[in-house]
């Protein structure tokens, strides 16, 4: 056996290899993609608690100020963080999901804008389908504010989610003294979600092999069968894992061996400073941008 061949083989067998092989088959779903994204994120090493703190603070400041500029700024921060975290490699599926969310928000803000107070003068009035649309200056501005708050929230949460694997999140929760039952559940559900997913995918291919897609009714039945199978499997594994947990001396919580980076002093400081700054900034700029005035010439109001 030649030396090179030995070496090559070694890395294949598993021992010496340094790069983990992807087991593949299951990398087709949102969860897996999100997870792989999180593990390859540039922000993975940032302390999860710090990230969580910053995200939540920015979210709240966006909600508590009346100025539309603040959510605009947080939205920009969110976009920047997301770009940095994912290194501009957003999987198609998740990008579509974001667009979908934005579309829903546009619809929602649109609804808000046409449900103005009837005591105020209308800038637009009429019937859209079965709606009695009545848009006022105030409702128009309010809709824009809410829209920006919402997309700022989405981008911030996504930048957090795309850089923090669930186990790190669970740890952050633990630090915040979220009840143990909830955090343990997060960990277990996360672990088993992948197993169940794998199982379901295999069952669906087994159904395909037996032609379980001929006709819509049969397709539905096959998927139902796979679902039932997965459910039974989940029951089985729950029952078995209880015994195996006992075998491994489980004492009611999952100890953490490798603590992620601890929250150092800059994190709370940065969070608080940025929040205060934004809030004060928001107070002074509450009326600087009036969306109505901006759009009025465009729409001919």
């Amino acid at each position: 056996m030649t030396l090179a061949a030995d070496k090559e083989k070694e890395s294949d067998v598993g021992g010496g290899g340094k790069t983990p092989s992807r087991s593949g088959a299951s990398s087709v779903t949102d969860q897996v993609q999100m997870d792989e994204l999180a593990y390859s994120s540039r922000m993975l090493s940032w302390p999860p608690l710090g990230k969580l703190m910053l995200t939540l603070f920015l979210l709240f400041v966006g909600l508590f100020t009346d100025s539309i500029i603040v959510p605009m700024i947080t939205f920009c921060i969110g976009i920047c963080l997301m770009v940095y975290s994912t290194n501009m490699r957003l999987p198609l599926l998740i990008a579509i999901a974001i667009l979908e969310a934005v579309a829903i928000m546009v619809l929602g803000s649109g609804m808000i804008s046409i449900m103005g107070d009837h005591h105020d003068p209308a800038i637009f009035q009429g019937h859209i389908l079965w709606f009695d649309a009545y848009m006022t200056v105030e409702s128009f501005n309010k809709a824009w504010l809410i829209f920006f708050r919402a997309i700022a929230g989405v981008t911030l949460m996504l930048s957090f989610a795309s850089s923090t694997p669930i186990p790190h999140l669970a740890l952050a929760c633990r630090r915040l003294h979220v009840p143990r039952e909830i955090t343990e559940l997060i960990v277990l559900v996360y672990r088993y979600a992948f197993l169940l997913l794998e199982r379901m995918l295999v069952m669906i291919s087994a159904a395909k092999c037996r032609l379980g897609y001929n006709g819509p009714l049969k397709t539905m039945k096959s998927y139902a069968g796979a679902m039932v199978g997965t459910f039974i499997f989940s029951m089985e594994i729950a029952e078995k894992s209880e015994a195996t947990l006992a075998c491994r001396n489980y004492r009611g919580f999952f100890p953490i061996y490798r603590m992620p980076a601890k929250v150092a002093w800059p994190w709370p400081v940065i969070s608080v400073v940025s929040v205060v700054a934004l809030y004060v900034f928001g107070m002074y700029t509450a009326d600087v941008i009036d969306m109505y005035k901006l759009f009025a010439p465009l729409l001919g109001w």
């Binding site: 295999v202 092999c209 379980g212 897609y213 049969k218 069968g225 499997f233």
Partner: peptide, 23 residues
């Protein structure tokens, strides 16, 4: 498939064997 549980879709043996031919 290697794991028979991946292949069993129906609650009863007869139904399950009939699954393929019915399809």
């Amino acid at each position: 498939f290697q794991n028979p549980d991946d292949m069993l879709f129906k609650p009863y043996v007869g139904q399950d064997v009939a699954y393929g031919p019915e399809n």
